[in-house]
Design a protein around this nucleic acid. Structure first.
Length: 643
RNA sequence: GCGCCUGUAGCUCAAUGGAUAGAGCGUUGGCCUCCGGAGCCAAAGGCUAUGGGUUCGAAUCCCGUCAGGCGCGCCA
């Protein structure tokens, strides 16, 4: 269904169409800075003034006179500030409308969106950088779902890369583990965390190991054991570890797309035929790149190698093929097998290079993967140029729509402050002391492990929960602590702008007060506690027939302010999606909770004697709960029973 | 060298070209006869790095300067 603001916008377009050519100009409303400027405001007159080189004030005056008295739900239209068009709403109408539409679903949007996120190399545990990726990607997927899109979440698994090969070398030839010993390593991902850093140090300092390293890579490619089987085992175990970590914070995937399947199914051969046929890819003329096939990248005016002189594919080549598949532009498909089922029953599928044989149970109702109309790749900003190259290639291959709907959802990295590095007992290299922040690096083992951070958050919230709820059972306390820890983490990962480098700081991340996830939860928990203490009869008598009349002036204003802001939910989520600004959702949620805390501190609900006033306050509690719970759901934050 | 990003309160960050630049943390001072103090109220703290320009209006857009970060590989 349409929101009030959407309806108001389209009503205005219709009323103005004879006098003004609005074209594609959207009529955007916001809530004015001050109440005296009305309930909603638009800067439309300023835009029109610019277009027509007129005076904003005059245009605003003209528009106001054309609209005055003709807009449903609007009591008055005024002009202020030299051209702002301010609307004062019929509050009782608006309140009724909000109340009626409380649990109405949004219209479904007939578009399939693919969100790729996480995509961690399966060679060691996840770290805080990966957490930012997954929290953003998951919130993005939830935004799309909230707005009615069909969403498929994919996690790309680079199970063939040198990164896995390096830890395979480390296991077999540095630590000299046999395949059976490797299977007995308890926390393999954690074990590899240290091994990977160690192996990288060795490779950097000893050139004589280069041949051994290449040999392991070759054996994996040629499926020679024990390297090959070890590689498969490691990739799968570490992947399971990542899936477990992410499931713990409420993040799930639909499909795990494996690089080995992209290769085995010759996706690139099909892509290459297209690329060459259209003249997008061609043999390099550069003598230094003799035998390479390249794509000319316009933005940077450089040649990017896609096929090496030895005939193997670079990362970009595989990525082009994979992304063509996402849009169903390849004419090929993966095979699929069920890989894992989440605790809530949601299945994850994994790509496969051959149809399932009779021994593996076929999925009960095989679903269709891929065929996206829009693709979001959640990848950090350091890959901008490769991602934009893929966008360029889609256009050059004659798929302008896909190119347009191919979105690199880019975000800045998570870094460590020098203080944080020291706090973790790690050493700073020369010249790093004065730096504002230091890049996290799995290669150097310099990062905060995801599991460790989550554990710290859990320990802290457990401590708080037990202190505040002496009677609670240990099991329940654990459960509550987890829910609170997840909220703290996810809010922290979302609240920054995407262009902001998060200079990670334990104190900031572990903050449960003020601008934090637990603050939001706390607001809702207290509000739920009001509802619990309310007899069911109280809600039945909630009647808005008299509007806000029973309330006194101060309360009326605060009440109205909250109702007005609550009405922006859909608009805010849409804004977050179209502007790639998930932090605006955090700010919106925080602002709402602040307003509500302020309100009910001044105006107690249950203690109120006047039944009309009490009913109105309860109504606000209900509205707030309904809308803000949905908003927190978009951010992946659950409301605990108590805290 | 070329490209992208950033510079806002002591610190960490917000601010959809819009009305008096806002929060949290920290500092200082208040509020429990309470629906839970993970809360509420208040104070102090700003030449939005810097110099120009565009505009009815600039932290925001454009140009220059200074400072910092990240990319630019026959790695992924």
């Amino acid at each position: 269904m349409k929101t009030f603001q959407e309806k108001l916008g389209s009503d205005i377009r219709i009323l103005l169409q004879d006098a003004y050519d609005l074209g594609e100009t959207a009529v955007v409303f916001s809530i004015p800075a001050e109440r005296k400027f009305g309930d909603l405001t638009t800067t439309l007159p300023f835009f029109l003034a610019k277009q027509r080189k007129g005076k904003p004030g005059a245009i605003a005056g003209d528009i106001a006179s054309r609209l005055q008295g003709r807009l449903d739900g609007v009591a008055e239209i005024t002009v202020a500030g030299g051209g702002f068009l301010n609307f004062t709403l019929r509050r009782d109408d608006f309140l009724h409308r909000q109340w009626r539409s409380l649990d109405q679903p949004l219209r479904a949007r007939p578009e399939k969106v693919i969100v790729e996120h996480t995509s961690i190399n399966p060679n060691k545990s996840a770290h805080i950088g990966h957490l930012r990726n997954s929290c953003l990607g998951d919130a993005l997927a939830r935004c799309c779902r909230f707005l009615g899109y069909e969403v498929e979440v994919q996690n790309y698994i680079d199970d063939t890369g040198v990164q896995v090969a390096d830890v395979v070398w480390g296991l077999l030839y540095h630590r000299r583990k046999s395949p059976s010993e490797i299977r007995e390593i308890p926390d393999l991902a954690g074990y590899l965390w240290d091994l990977y850093a160690e192996v990288n140090r060795l490779f950097a300092s000893r050139e004589d190991l280069a041949a051994e390293r290449r040999d392991v890579q070759r054996k994996i490619e040629e499926k020679i054991d024990p390297e090959f089987t070890t590689c498969l085992y490691v990739a799968e175990q570490v992947l399971l570890d990542h899936i477990r970590t992410m499931e713990g914070i409420g993040i799930q995937y639909d499909l795990l797309a494996r690089e080995s399947d992209v290769i085995a199914l010759d996706f690139f051969t099909a892509a290459a035929a297209e690329l060459t046929g259209r003249g997008v890819m061609f043999p390099s003329a550069d003598p230094e790149k003799k035998g390479c096939h390249v794509i000319h990248y316009d933005r940077e005016k450089i040649e990017k190698i896609i096929v090496r002189s030895n005939g193997t594919l670079t990362y970009v080549g595989k990525d082009i093929a994979y992304n063509l598949w996402k849009f169903d532009l390849l004419g090929l498909d993966f095979h699929y097998r069920p890989f894992h089922a989440y605790a809530d029953g949601h299945p994850i599928y994994m790509t496969a290079s051959a149809p399932a044989d009779a021994s593996t149970p076929a999925p009960p109702s095989p679903r269709v993967f891929g065929r996206g109309q829009r693709v979001y790749n959640v990848i950090d900003v350091r890959q901008s140029y490769l991602q934009s190259l893929i966008g360029q290639v889609l256009a050059q291959l004659g798929h302008p729509r896909a190119s347009e709907n191919f979105v690199h959802f880019s975000y800045e990295m998570v870094a460590l402050t020098p203080a944080c590095v020291r706090e973790m007992g790690l050493t700073l290299e020369a010249g790093e002391e004065g730096k504002p922040y230091i890049e996290v690096s799995g290669r150097k083992g310099r990062a905060v492990k995801a599991d460790e951070l989550i554990l710290m958050l859990e320990e802290k919230s457990l401590h708080e929960v037990q202190a505040r709820n002496p009677g609670v059972s240990p099991e329940e306390a654990r459960k509550l602590a987890r829910v609170i820890a997840v909220a703290a983490l996810r809010y922290f990962m979302i609240k920054f702008n995407l262009t902001t480098v998060i200079a990670f700081d334990f104190k900031e991340a572990l903050n449960f007060e003020g601008d934090s996830g637990p603050y939001l939860q706390y607001t809702l928990v207290r509000l739920n506690s009001i509802l619990k203490k309310t007899g069911s009869g109280d809600l039945e008598t909630a009647d808005t027939a008299g509007g806000l009349a029973p309330l006194d002036g101060k309360e009326k204003e605060l009440y109205w302010e909250i109702v007005l802001h609550l009405s922006l939910l859909e608009i805010q989520v849409e804004y977050a999606l179209t502007h790639h600004d998930l932090s605006s959702l955090a700010a919106y949620a925080y602002g709402l909770c602040q307003k509500f805390n302020h309100y009910y501190h001044l105006f107690p609900v249950l203690a109120e004697k006047d039944p009309a006033i009490r009913a109105l306050r309860l109504l606000l509690v209900r509205m707030f709960k309904s809308r803000v719970e949905k908003l927190l759901q978009v951010m992946g934050i659950e409301i605990p029973e108590r805290m």
